[in-house]
Amino acid sequence: MNDRVFGVFTLLLSIFYIFSAYIVEESIISDHIGPKIYPYIVSFFLITSSLFLIIKPDIKPIWPRFGKIIEILMTALILVMYAVFLPIIGFVFSTFFASSFISWRLGAKLTSAFTAGLIISVTIFILFRKVLGLSLATGPLGF
């Protein structure tokens, strides 16, 4: 059943993909197999494999406990938020929150997780920004 749901999802995705390819405006000088046809070819295989998955799914996989699923979703959310907040609040703060949270979830105690977050964010910032001169996102406070 899990595979079937996934198959339906990828089927919908490939329909969206075909639509996206359909609205591509080709230039006049295109070959026969131009920027529009290639996505069509890819989506043909995408649709075929999705259908295969719906018709012949694997046996049911072992799902992690509900708590674990929530944890994984939370981690994914933290990573997305990290990407969103990085340019706004700067590298040090966002890295501190993200890495503290992830080290906590990977099994560290709360205090050591925060310490790890602090060390990771500050050291990387100093090392990359000040020593190696790489550009990292800065927030309103300049770090």
Partner: peptide, 24 residues
Amino acid sequence: VLASCLGLGIATIGVDHQTGVPRM
């Protein structure tokens, strides 16, 4: 096959190198 096609799909995003047509 599905995973490979997803990869190929991701690769088609952006301006096409051959023709300069933006895709997806």
